[in-house]
Amino acid sequence: GKMTGIVKWFNADKGFGFITPDDGSKDVFVHFSAIQNDGYKSSDEGQKVSFTIESGAKGPAAGNVTSL
């Protein structure tokens, strides 16, 4: 299901970062391709987002990331 969290950091040059879930669980990796914004796929530190957890090649990753 959908979770909410805060972007801990995001490196636009490398195209990835981490989200800290609101439920206190482990930080989740986020790749720019998962960000659902139109246009520039980046996110700012401290941005509140909703997301799903997908199982990626390197473990859990955020999917369907949407700014709230």
Rank of each mutant, 00 (worst) to 15 (best):
G1V: 14
G1E: 11
M3Y: 10
M3E: 04
M3F: 10
T4Q: 05
G5H: 02
I6M: 07
V7R: 00
V7W: 08
K8S: 06
K8P: 02
K8A: 06
W9I: 03
W9H: 01
W9S: 02
N11K: 04
D13T: 13
K14I: 09
G15L: 04
G15S: 03
G17I: 05
F18S: 01
F18D: 01
F18G: 01
F18L: 05
I19W: 02
P21D: 01
P21S: 04
D22T: 07
D23A: 04
D23E: 03
S25D: 07
S25G: 14
S25C: 06
S25A: 06
K26L: 09
K26S: 11
K26H: 09
V28S: 00
V28H: 01
F29H: 01
V30K: 00
V30S: 00
F32S: 11
F32Q: 11
S33V: 06
A34W: 05
A34S: 10
A34L: 02
I35M: 13
I35C: 13
I35S: 03
Q36R: 08
Q36V: 13
Q36F: 11
D38S: 13
G39A: 11
Y40E: 08
Y40F: 14
Y40Q: 09
K41G: 12
K41T: 13
K41P: 11
S42H: 13
S42I: 14
S43F: 15
D44Y: 15
D44R: 15
D44L: 15
D44S: 15
E45Y: 14
G46K: 09
G46S: 07
G46Y: 09
G46C: 14
Q47K: 10
Q47N: 10
Q47Y: 11
Q47P: 05
Q47C: 14
V49Y: 03
V49M: 03
S50M: 10
S50R: 07
T52V: 11
T52D: 07
T52Y: 09
T52S: 08
T52L: 07
I53W: 08
E54Y: 13
S55N: 14
S55I: 15
G56L: 07
G56W: 09
G56M: 08
A57I: 13
A57S: 11
K58G: 09
P60L: 12
P60S: 07
P60C: 08
A62R: 00
A62C: 03
A62H: 02
A62Q: 02
G63K: 15
G63V: 14
N64P: 02
V65L: 04
V65D: 02
V65A: 02
S67A: 13
L68Y: 07
L68D: 07
L68M: 10
